[in-house]
Design a binder for these strands. Structure first.
Length: 436
RNA sequence: GUGGGUAUAGUUCAGUGGCAGAACGCCAGACUGUGGCUCUGGAUGUCGUGGGUUCGACCCCCACUACCCACCCCA
C-alpha cells in the first residue's frame, strides 16, 4: 500500500470543514484590516532562505527540503531549490522583485498555504504544515516602524482567536532589540554564561557555543535559577528600541489586548528585531505555540532590497485547528434535504426536483429508486440530513410531497412550491460554528 | 539526528505456544411507502514486514519498517 509520506497527512471531511471555517474567518478579518492576499511560490531559490532565515539556523542547516535542480545546459550547474520552510522570506523577495515600495502607503499582505520542514513529526508538528500569515512592510516614511502597527497586528490576532471561540490563549511579548544593541547584549550574555557554563545542562553548554540566546529559553528546572541571574534583553535595549517597545505595550493596553512580558522569548529566525511575540495555547502538547511572529526591520536590506521595516506573523494552522477542536466548536456540513425516489422511473423525477431546489440554494442529496424507503430514511438520518423528501408514484400523481423532519419525526404534505419555505425557516450560515 | 511507546477487523482495543475475538461501525432481514430503539443474521483480517526457535508462533527471539509521544529545534 502506498501511504502519505512521513510527516504529511490527508485532511479528510469533516475536518476540512473546520479548516475552511478557519480560513474563511481569517480572510474576513484580513479584509476588514485591509490586508490583501499574496501567493508566492512553494519553491524558491535556496539562497533566499540562507540569507533571510539564517544559514546557521536549524531550519536551514538541517530541516529544509532542498536539492540541486537539473542543469539547463551541460556546461552549467543546476540551481539549488528549496521547498519554503516559512513564507515571510518569499513575501519580502516578492516585495523587492516587484518594487512594491513604489506603491503608495504600507503594504499589507496575507497568505495561506503549506510550508515544509524536514523535522521528526510529533503532535502539532508535520513536515508539510500550513500557515496563515500576514506581513506589513514599507518605507519608514509610510509609517512601517510605528509601534501602532505592531499593536494593531496583535489586536487583529486576538480578535481572530476570540472570534473563533478559542479559549485560554496567552500572548507573550518581548523585544529582541536591534542591530545596535543586540551585539552588546550578546556580549554581556556570553560573559555571564562563561562563569556558569559548567553548571548548566549539556544542551545549554552547546547553546552557549552555537546560540546563547537559546539558553534563555531552556526548560530544564535545574537551570532556572541560573537563567534568572543572567542579563536581560530588556536592560540592554537602546533608547529607540525601548521607547518603541513601551509604546507597543501602551497601545495594546489601550486596545484592551491582554499580554504578558516574557523577556526570555526568543525567535528562531535570524531576521527578527524589536517586537517578538508568541500566542500559546494549553492542551496542544509540547508544541504549544499557535502563532509566532515579530518585526524584521533589516530583512529587506539583507536580501538586497531597500530599507523596508516590517512586521509579520505566522499562525500554525494545524495547531489552530487543534485548539479549535479542543474548544469544542467546530462547524458541520449539513444536507438540507435527502430526496428518496421510490420505485421505477422515480430517479428522473428526483433529478429534476433536485435541480430546482439546488437553484434556490438548498443542499440536496438524492437517493436511488431501487432503495427501499427504510434504507433511504436510514441513510438520510445517518448522513445528517435535516429533512427527507419522499418521491414516489403517489407524489408524482398528486403533486403533494411528503416532507419529513428527521430530527422531530414530523411529516407534512406540501406542494412543490412550498418545499423551500418549509425548510428555510431553519436556514443557517454554512460557516457558523455549531456544536457537534 | 536522539530517547520512549505502539503495531490484531473500517475504528477503538482485548487475547492465548494449539480453531482469530469484543464493542462500535458496515451490509441484510424481522418491518414490500417511514429512520433513530430493539432483535436476528452476515462480511470483514497476509494478527506491520522479513528471518529465527518450535511438532506447531498472532504469542518467544532477532532485524527492519511505519505510526505516536518527547528531546533537539520550531508555527
Amino acid at each position: 500500500m502506498i501511504r502519505a509520506v512521513r510527516g504529511t497527512r490527508d485532511l479528510l471531511p469533516p475536518e476540512t470543514e473546520t479548516w475552511n471555517f478557519v480560513e474563511a474567518r481569517a480572510r474576513e478579518l484580513f479584509r476588514v484590516y485591509n490586508f490583501q492576499e499574496i501567493r508566492t511560490p512553494i519553491l524558491e531559490d535556496l539562497q533566499l532562505f540562507q540569507r533571510s532565515v539564517g544559514e546557521e539556523t536549524d531550519i536551514v542547516s538541517k530541516e529544509m527540503f532542498a536539492w540541486e535542480d537539473r542543469a539547463r545546459a551541460q556546461s552549467e550547474k543546476g540551481q539549488w531549490l528549496a521547498l519554503r520552510p516559512e513564507n515571510t522570506a518569499g513575501v519580502v523577495r516578492a516585495y523587492i522583485e516587484h518594487k512594491l515600495w513604489e506603491r503608495p502607503g504600507l503594504q499589507r499582505f496575507y497568505y495561506i498555504g503549506p510550508q515544509f520542514r524536514r523535522e521528526r513529526p510529533q503532535k502539532g508538528r508535520y513536515r508539510q504544515f500550513y500557515q496563515i500569515g500576514a506581513e506589513v512592510i514599507g518605507p519608514s516614511a509610510a509609517g512601517s516602524e510605528s509601534p501602532v502597527v505592531d499593536a494593531e497586528l496583535l489586536e487583529m490576532l486576538a480578535s481572530l482567536l476570540d472570534g473563533l471561540g478559542i479559549k485560554g490563549w496567552t500572548l507573550e511579548l518581548n523585544s529582541v532589540g536591534c542591530a545596535n544593541d543586540r551585539p552588546i547584549f550578546l556580549e554581556a550574555l556570553r560573559n555571564a554564561l562563561k562563569d556558569v557554563v559548567g553548571k548548566i545542562c549539556v544542551d545549554c553548554q552547546r547553546r552557549y557555543e552555537t546560540n546563547p540566546l537559546r539558553v534563555l529559553d531552556c526548560k530544564v528546572p535545574e537551570d532556572q535559577p541560573i537563567i534568572e541571574g543572567l542579563p536581560k534583553q530588556s536592560d540592554y535595549l537602546d533608547e529607540s528600541c525601548r521607547t518603541h517597545f513601551v509604546e507597543v505595550q501602551k497601545v495594546l493596553t489601550a486596545l484592551g489586548v491582554p499580554f504578558v512580558l516574557n523577556n526570555r522569548l526568543v525567535r528562531g529566525l535570524d531576521y527578527y528585531t524589536r517586537t517578538a511575540f508568541e500566542f500559546t495555547h494549553g492542551a496542544l502538547g509540547a508544541q504549544n505555540a499557535i502563532i509566532g511572529g515579530g518585526r524584521y526591520d533589516g530583512l529587506s536590506e539583507s536580501l538586497g532590497g531597500p530599507a523596508a521595516p516590517g512586521i509579520g506573523f505566522a499562525i500554525g494552522e494545524d495547531r489552530l485547528v487543534m485548539a479549535l477542536q479542543e474548544s469544542g466548536a467546530v462547524p458541520v456540513s449539513v444536507t438540507d434535504i435527502y430526496i428518496a425516489p421510490l420505485g421505477a422511473g422515480m430517479n428522473i423525477h428526483a433529478a429534476v426536483l433536485a435541480r430546482e431546489l439546488r437553484k434556490q440554494g438548498i443542499v440536496i442529496t438524492v437517493g436511488d429508486e431501487t432503495f427501499r424507503l427504510k434504507k433511504s430514511l436510514e441513510t438520510a438520518s445517518k448522513t445528517g440530513a435535516r429533512y427527507a423528501l419522499i418521491l414516489g408514484e403517489n407524489e408524482v400523481v398528486s403533486g403533494q410531497f411528503a416532507l419529513k423532519n428527521l430530527a422531530t419525526g414530523e411529516q407534512v404534505s406540501v406542494v412543490r412550491k412550498e418545499i423551500f419555505s418549509n425548510i428555510s425557516s431553519a436556514a443557517r450560515d454554512p460557516y457558523s460554528a455549531e456544536e457537534r
